[in-house]
């Protein structure tokens, strides 16, 4: 059995390297470091202050490394009443889920970490449903009132948000005629799908904010009510993991939004440049997208859970179904892409 394992590893070494080291882990960690630094500096400017200025020169780019070292050096505190196995398990597993979602995103022609045989969009959504499950596990395992309330809120929110998001992307699937993310990207070479799918995009974007749990939908981890929601009891390196999971989740969903509606790795159709096509464009779009998301996070108040659920079921769901009907009609009369 060991032999079989070794030969399996030998045969698939390249794939494992791609998933685990480069671009997989390296890219994700690089993004997390960049996103945290960027969030700190950018939000500081919006709040008319400076942000980190000491670690790593004037721009403070080493601040996260310093924070991470501080957190790792701290003691791991397990609450006495907690289920220690599940408590630790959830903190280890949680960042893996969004990381697995990123593996399905095409970054450039031919650069895709895991090609899910033509159904990658469906696989993406299938993996994403694991997130609330692990969230409940962490909330339950910590055995604290604040964490369990946060965990249940997470479930309400994910169900209310994910169904409209999925139905909105069904519109994209119908318009493109495929489940495959790579093909969806290829079909946007001449026109991004935000144009024919504008209604779907609105629905997707609001649901998307719920999926990444940012203001106005940071209801599960609402600091003013629940301290840090399901993450309240985590400390040290486990807390670092949780923060990392949040940022990877943000990365995964933002990449999906770019892939579905903003042409993925394609440049703008007007001045498409074959040289720059690929990673450059997707990273540029990523930075613009997270800039807008960060601005949104401090522009608005947080919704209540009942308002968020009501928004999901009463407005987003009918709109997403209307979008599917519209897409079918457009496809019937205009012909697809």
């Amino acid at each position: 059995m060991i032999d079989a394992l070794i030969s399996f590893v030998n045969e698939n070494l390249g794939v494992l390297f791609v998933i685990a080291i480069f671009p997989g882990l390296a890219f994700i960690l690089g993004f997390v470091i960049f996103a945290v630094w960027y969030q700190r500096k950018y939000l500081a400017r919006l709040m008319i202050r400076m942000g980190p200025v000491h670690c790593g020169g004037r721009m403070g780019w080493l601040q996260l490394i310093a924070d991470a070292m501080k957190l790792v050096a701290k003691e791991l505190i397990f609450p006495r009443a907690a289920n220690k196995t599940l408590f630790l398990f959830a903190s280890v597993v949680l960042p893996v889920i969004p990381a697995a979602m990123i593996a399905l995103i095409p970054f450039a022609p031919g650069l895709i970490i895991y090609d899910a045989a033509g159904v990658s969009l469906l696989v993406f959504f299938a993996i994403s449903t694991l997130f609330p499950v692990v969230s409940v596990i962490r909330g339950w395992a910590a055995n604290n009132k604040f964490t369990i309330i946060g965990a249940f809120r997470n479930i309400y929110l994910d169900i209310a948000g994910e169904i409209p998001v999925f139905l909105a992307s069904v519109g994209v699937m119908i318009w493109a005629g495929t489940y495959d993310l790579n093909e969806i990207v290829l079909k946007q070479a001449s026109m991004w799908f935000i144009v024919p799918q504008f209604l779907g995009f609105i629905v997707f974007f609001i649901g998307f904010l719920a999926m990444i749990e940012k203001v106005p939908f940071d209801i599960p981890t609402a600091e003013t009510e629940l301290i840090y929601g399901p993450n309240t009891e985590y400390s040290g390196a486990m807390f670092l993991n949780m923060m990392e999971a949040d940022y990877i989740n943000l990365l995964a969903w933002t990449l999906l939004m770019i892939t579905l509606y903003f042409g993925g790795y394609n440049g703008p159709p007007i001045f498409a440049d074959p040289v720059l096509n690929g990673v450059f464009w997707i990273l540029l779009k990523l930075i613009i997208a997270i800039t807008i998301i960060f601005t949104i996070t401090i522009s608005y108040a947080r919704l209540r859970i009942d308002q968020a659920v009501k928004m999901g079921w009463n407005y987003l769901l009918p709109l997403s179904i209307l979008n599917i009907l519209l897409t079918l009609a457009m496809k019937f009369y205009l012909g697809g892409v």
Binding site: L43, L46, M47, I48, R49, V215, P216, D218, A222, E223, T224, I298, S299, Y300, A301, R302
Partner: peptide, 17 residues
């Protein structure tokens, strides 16, 4: 008030400034 509604530090820091 803004911070309690959203942990929204922007308005809080504007007012503080």
């Amino acid at each position: 008030l803004s911070e309690s509604a959203a942990w929204n530090p922007a308005v809080f820091l504007w007012t503080t400034a």
